[in-house]
Amino acid sequence: MTTVNANGIALGIESFGDDDAPLVLLAGGPTMLSWPDALCEHLAVGGRRAVRYDLRDSGESTTADPEAPAYTLRDLAADAAALVDALGGGPAHLAGIGVGGMVAQVAVLDHPGAFSALTLVGTRAVAPGPPDGDLPDHDQATMSRLFARPMPDWTDREAVAEFAATGAEILGDDPVAARAIAARVWDRTPGTAPPVQTANQMGMVFSRLDCRPRWRERLPEIGIPALVVHGRRNRFFPVGNGEAIAREIPEARLLVLEEAATAIPDAAVSEVAEAMLTLG
């Protein structure tokens, strides 16, 4: 892992595969560890340079004030394009998971020359907050359970890992995997202040971002190959969100993972990686 300067900030990255291979850029959701190690390794074996990176205010990337971010969703999209240029691998296959998928959609719309293909995993085509009327919202019973839990002691690594495990169980993800990833995220988080921890562990900084203007209506402008991956059991962004994106991006392929929720489970890594390799 290292950092690369792009768009005037430092972005934490980790690279897998040959530096001269075609680039697949993996936008974190919000940290790079949202992307499984095994998927990155599979892409590298498939002849790609897989580079996963931390969004601002997470991991090794520039952290300022997660409670009052002085940047917008469009700035995060510009970060992705600038990172491609800094890595020298353009145009690149861009992939985003969760909130990183929102970044990826705006990036390919605002910077089409930087990208050759697009993969979106477990995301939606509208900003955080109430969705459009035709899109399913978060499952409210799940959200009530998720946010009824008291916040952990963010200075306690094990308490944070346990908090992530119980959250994963509520969401339908693997609590053992979530516990391990949360501990790794904690190790990479620059400080234990609650705003910094919630930005890294929960992506809460996104609730404070300026995400205007809307981009859903522009999805038909996307002219590169696109893959939309969504878990059938996703209660945070129900599968109808992925189905809508796949309908609205011309000729997009929809891959529904029947046994998945918000994360890419180990059992689906090979299927997702192979679909991405086929895309470009």
Rank of each mutant, 00 (worst) to 15 (best):
residue 87 L to P: 08
residue 159 A to S: 08
residue 113 G to L: 12
residue 117 A to P: 03
residue 106 V to C: 09
residue 150 P to C: 06
residue 97 I to Q: 10
residue 92 A to I: 02
residue 142 T to Y: 09
residue 170 I to P: 02
residue 70 A to K: 12
residue 123 T to E: 00
residue 34 S to R: 01
residue 143 M to C: 05
residue 163 F to D: 14
residue 75 D to L: 07
residue 88 G to R: 04
residue 63 T to Q: 03
residue 127 A to Y: 06
residue 39 L to M: 12
residue 33 L to K: 06
residue 97 I to W: 01
residue 125 A to Q: 12
residue 51 V to Y: 08
residue 45 V to A: 15
residue 39 L to N: 03
residue 101 G to R: 02
residue 128 P to N: 04
residue 139 D to T: 09
residue 74 R to D: 15
residue 84 V to S: 00
residue 83 L to F: 07
residue 104 A to I: 05
residue 124 R to M: 14
residue 137 D to W: 07
residue 39 L to Y: 10
residue 96 G to S: 13
residue 51 V to S: 04
residue 90 G to I: 08
residue 131 P to T: 11
residue 171 L to P: 00
residue 102 M to K: 02
residue 98 G to W: 01
residue 104 A to V: 09
residue 37 D to M: 00
residue 70 A to I: 08
residue 37 D to R: 04
residue 100 G to T: 03
residue 74 R to C: 06
residue 107 A to T: 00
residue 134 D to P: 08
residue 145 R to N: 09
residue 88 G to I: 08
residue 131 P to Y: 07
residue 154 W to I: 04
residue 67 E to H: 08
residue 42 H to F: 03
residue 29 G to V: 00
residue 170 I to F: 02
residue 54 D to T: 08
residue 144 S to A: 15
residue 107 A to P: 05
residue 77 A to G: 09
residue 96 G to H: 07
residue 42 H to R: 15
residue 31 T to K: 05
residue 40 C to I: 00
residue 112 P to G: 10
residue 71 Y to S: 11
residue 160 V to W: 01
residue 134 D to V: 09
residue 70 A to G: 12
residue 109 L to G: 03
residue 47 G to Q: 11
residue 82 A to F: 06
residue 140 Q to P: 11
residue 143 M to G: 11
residue 89 G to E: 04
residue 171 L to I: 14
residue 137 D to S: 13
residue 154 W to L: 09
residue 89 G to M: 07
residue 105 Q to M: 15
residue 97 I to N: 02
residue 98 G to E: 14
residue 133 G to V: 13
residue 80 A to E: 06
